[in-house]
Design a protein around this nucleic acid. Sequence first.
RNA 1: GCGGUAGUGGUGAAGUGGUUAACACACUGGUUUGUGGAUCCAGCAUGCGAGGGUUCGAUCCCCUUCUACCGCCCCA
Length: 435
Amino acid sequence: MAKANYQKPKGTADLFGQDVLAWQRIEQQARLIFSRYGYGEIRTPMFEAFELFSRSAGDTSDVVTKEMYDFFDKGDRHMALRPEGTAGVVRAFVENKLFGPEHEKPYKTFYMGPMFRYERPQAGRFRQFHQIGVEAFGSTEPSLDAEVITMVVKFLSSLGLKDLKVALNTLGDQESRANYRQALIDFLKPHEAELSKDSQVRLEKNPLRVLDSKDKNDQAIVADAPKIFDYLSEESKEHFAAVKSYLDDLGIQYEVDQTMVRGLDYYNNTIFEVMTTDPNLKGAATIAGGGRYSGLVEEFGGPETPGIGFGLGVERLISLLEAQNQLNLEDAGLDFYLAHIGDASRAKTLELATNLRDLGFKADLDFAGRSMKAQFKAANRRKARFVITIGDNEVETGQVKVKDMITGHQADMDMNKVGEQIEKVIAELVAEEAE
RNA sequence: GCGGUAGUGGUGAAGUGGUUAACACACUGGUUUGUGGAUCCAGCAUGCGAGGGUUCGAUCCCCUUCUACCGCCCCA
């Protein structure tokens, strides 16, 4: 009988060691920056009713039709692992009546966690991936759009990211968008035969997508296509102009990209993406994307409430930071490594380590019964600042040796009075370094 | 869903249809009966992703499968 050989599911990752440090850094920074902007964290379930996602993302979107991790639970309910964060947050917003008068408007919230999409793993793309996202409900003010975009930019640059580009576009309101869509179809239909296979399909399913086709020939055709800007209502035009003006005032760089389209159906008016101009990360160039939406809250049974938000891909962010060498994270070394020899010393060593830990120090010891030399090597590997040696003599007298690993000097300490003596011993040893 | 490349010890990586699968790093022990980052010595893959097949014989040839990576679709 061969032993079972398990592997992690396709498109997933185990994170540990150095990698986790990067994740912690990013999550911590997100919490810090977002809270400055008045956003509070929300945690919603990782799975929801299938319909929640199919209704919000659009029945024809790829995310719904072929990428959803859905299943029927034991109660025969059709469930799905969340492919994105917004739907769950909107559901929670409605279900918990966060639109109520006791809550500040706009209601600003952020989330972070795993998302799931059944697709072929690739550069910057996984089946379980992680997003950090925000949503703000209850205001149509263009200044809020500008604030949200500003917040992403500030967050990313606070991590040391460079070569960022904010692409900005507007889809107009529902009516503008519908008019434009029709105009686009009217324009493209005569060219249908010339379009790439993919774009022919797009023309049927989601004509706006033809705009950002990668096919050169498509791009040439699309160059003469009608522009969304010509179909915007006065209100949408003003909104977009205001957003740009606020961003200008704040000194946030952006580029208007009339061909940018977002994948999920619920967006209108302002949409944006943050991408890297780093040519090495073409496949995963977009690290954050979002925009305004309306209708979602009503769709889920709440009052008419506008929203705006974005989602940011943590894996992509990390690979970008790595490429730019911004992840020089070192885990802090130990304060003390306790090297002990002989069976008699084990209990005392464990006790001393525990005492040091209670005093707030990082301390560890050998559990493998290794030689003194091996334990000193271990201490180096662990970047221990001091090594305390304990053998039979020390157990007998109670006096242990504290060695400064930088200078090599040693001092004695009464292991039964660590609380009183440790600071003084450290101070003495450190003072010697200064000389 | 479609197309391409790859898969050898903890890591990086050589290699060949045929007795013991290089080398380096790391690790463990010793040289120093209890003190570190150096030197030297020794140990460390019953195994070459998994399962079949061809063959007297396969890590090396063939098929299937899994996984990773790259491109398309789509997206974070």
